[in-house]
Design a protein around this nucleic acid. Sequence first.
DNA 1: ATAGAGATGATAATGATTATCAGTGATATA
DNA 2: TATATCACTGATAATCATTATCATCTCTAT
Lengths: 146, 146
Amino acid sequence: MFGKSINNKLKDNDYRLTGQRTAILEVMMDNQGRHLSAEEVLVQAREKQPNIGIATVYRTLEKLAAIDILYKSMFNDDKYRYEIKDDHSEHHHHHIVCLACGKIAELEDDLLCSLEGQLETQGFEVVDHELKFFVYCPVCREKKNK
Amino acid sequence: MFGKSINNKLKDNDYRLTGQRTAILEVMMDNQGRHLSAEEVLVQAREKQPNIGIATVYRTLEKLAAIDILYKSMFNDDKYRYEIKDDHSEHHHHHIVCLACGKIAELEDDLLCSLEGQLETQGFEVVDHELKFFVYCPVCREKKNK
DNA sequence: ATAGAGATGATAATGATTATCAGTGATATA
DNA sequence: TATATCACTGATAATCATTATCATCTCTAT
């Protein structure tokens, strides 16, 4: 229903697909590549499940992140944002945050692996990493320099 | 009083050095390499300035981060942590966070620069980046696998 | 000394997130 | 099919880090 990988993760974790959870997952699928706050998810989920409450949204997002269906991260506004993982990407992904317009772009890259290699040589077990670039995007850079 | 670079930054920004601010800066110097929360700074600052209040701590840390004397970042406990910048390090620095004991190690590395180069080719102006590795440190890895 | 600006501490307000709890719905077993 | 159990939900209170407010204090410059 949601793609093989997601369905497997749900099943592996005994995660019952209620109407509310389905609505939230649908919202996240509809917003592939975007980074939604709990409040934003609530608004969209209410279009499908008018009575859904914010607590359920938090609970569900938290759980979906824990079982690796969503990414959870924070940028520059003190609230967590969630994004659906796509099947092909590895467990790492990298964000490019524009300091002016706040737009967030993705950066997929493997250079980081060599850094991880170094760490593992030193006895660390690398589980994940998070990399954020803070930039002016081409558009805002233009505006800024006028 | 606090080293040339810090003093310059204070002067450039018309930042008056009151007793409270001095206390906070001293605390940060005493904890070079550690990542303190506002509350932790308060406790130590009170040893030097018994009446200092939490609001002043927040205000001061915020300002010192804005004028580039401190780093501000968040790890896995939903509170900002501050760390003094050392004069030699560049504007980027990278953290290695142990998922078991929470210890934070530093990683200085220049490989990231090539990534930035790519972004700049694409028209982005890279201002800063933040990279966190989530790992099991050698000690915790050992424990975990027993 | 004195006016005005900046700084401070106490505390109220805010805002995101989490906990609680009573009610609801699904499930499994007899 | 009835029923006991257990997970799930929504409303809302509680929490906790951070920010705003405001009266007071303290510099500094005239």
